[in-house]
């Protein structure tokens, strides 16, 4: 029943390749890799102290495509110039590779806690659909808003 309702709601709302536009807003930097159009926006939250990335993706193809945010390559660069691999905050172990239906769209917002201040974060958008080619998008740190006392 849920699948049927989803199908009814999706009827007539097919994602148009390269449009980066649907009922889901595609904010941030954009990349096209394999069957996926991906937009990523950095939205650090001062109250949490983590790097937050908002992913929007649309399937350019008629067939399903894998979206693997669990093992997407995300690199953070520290103020001392060193770098570290970042993993998403996932206390419920719910982030896993999922299939995105043909011409469908999706959106997820993930938090990455590096434990240190990061100058910038780079994401290999090509690793999200497990494409053979890398497609790096980098995001500088955002100015932190002062905490409200």
């Amino acid at each position: 029943m849920r699948a049927f309702l989803a199908g009814v709601l999706l009827a007539g709302c097919a994602y148009q390749p390269s449009s980066f536009r649907s009922e889901t807003q595609f904010l941030g930097q954009r990349a096209t890799t394999g069957c996926l159009d991906i937009a990523i926006e950095r939205r650090d939250r001062s109250t949490v102290g983590e790097a937050v990335l908002a992913y929007s993706f649309g399937n350019r193809c008629d067939r399903p495509v894998i979206v693997d945010l669990a093992s997407a390559t995300v690199i953070g660069r520290r103020t001392d110039g060193g770098s570290l691999v970042l993993h998403p905050y996932d206390p419920r172990r719910e982030i896993e590779p999922r299939w995105l239906d043909g011409r469908a769209v999706g959106r997820e917002t993930l938090a990455y806690d590096a434990g240190v201040t990061l100058v910038d974060i780079c994401v290999d958008a090509g690793s999200i659909p497990r494409a053979p080619m890398s497609s790096w998008l980098c995001f500088a740190s955002q100015p932190q808003r002062p905490e409200v006392p």
Partner: peptide
């Protein structure tokens, strides 16, 4: 809306239809 903090929508709600067998009505 951040995964791990949000409670209403599970991760991967956008992939629901593909998880199940293709049905038509």
């Amino acid at each position: 809306e951040v995964v791990g903090y949000r409670k209403c929508t599970p991760y991967g709600a956008w992939s629901l239809a593909v998880d199940e067998r293709a049905i038509f009505v």
